[in-house]
């Protein structure tokens, strides 16, 4: 009972925050709403007996990704004082598509709900961190190592990409004009 209520609260907060992420006109607000989503997800993980994952979620996502996003937002809008516009494009196809998608997935879930084992969280042995660690270092060792290689590659790639080129690339024109021109292009 309490579990259900708790789940209900978490779920609603999650959904609300998610909707605010995509509908907020202010980009910074969107990022912050995303932070809430990620925290709620971590809480959800805790209830699903995945404490390790919850911790990683908080560290990595809430800490790392949000910070990166905020930095990105700040770096890509150089107008001082001008509100960072977060433009929303055509809505109707998006609504249509997402509704349809939800319908399909929801239908699938509903139809297979009998096949899914009933609440067994209490009785079934939930995997704990030890089992997780063991799985990583024995069965999925190769993927683990490859993951680290991937992260390394991503890091190096990002650094190379975001480096300031020193061989005479011209400084871009003041953003106000260029954004205006870009808008003209998009309108045409």
């Amino acid at each position: 009972m309490i579990a259900a209520l708790g789940f209900g609260i978490i779920a609603s907060v999650l959904m609300l925050a998610a909707i605010r992420v995509v509908s907020s006109p202010d980009l910074v607000r969107s990022v912050l709403w995303l932070a809430l989503v990620l925290v709620m997800t971590a809480v959800l993980f805790l209830t699903l007996s995945a404490p390790f994952l919850a911790g990683i979620q908080l560290l990595l996502y809430t800490g790392g990704v949000i910070t990166l996003m905020l930095f990105g937002v700040m770096l890509t809008s150089r107008q001082a004082g001008v509100e960072i516009r977060n433009e929303i494009g055509a809505i109707s196809p998006a609504v249509l598509f997402s509704t349809i998608l939800f319908g399909i997935m929801g239908g699938a879930i509903y139809r297979s709900s009998d096949a899914l084992p009933r609440p067994a969280f209490a009785s079934a042995p939930a995997p704990d961190t030890e089992a997780l660690g063991r799985a990583f270092l024995t069965e999925h060792m190769l993927s683990f190592e490859l993951l680290s290689v991937l992260l390394l590659a991503a890091m190096i790639g990002a650094i190379v990409l975001a480096r300031r080129r020193d061989f005479g690339a011209p400084e871009p024109a003041p953003p106000s004009e260029r954004t205006a021109r870009a808008d003209e292009e998009t309108r045409s």
Partner: peptide, 17 residues
């Protein structure tokens, strides 16, 4: 949650969005 994400993907014009 996924569908909300899809909606946002289709809707947002800003790359960070």
């Amino acid at each position: 949650l996924f569908c909300v994400g899809v909606y946002g993907l289709l809707t947002r014009r800003n790359a960070i969005g």
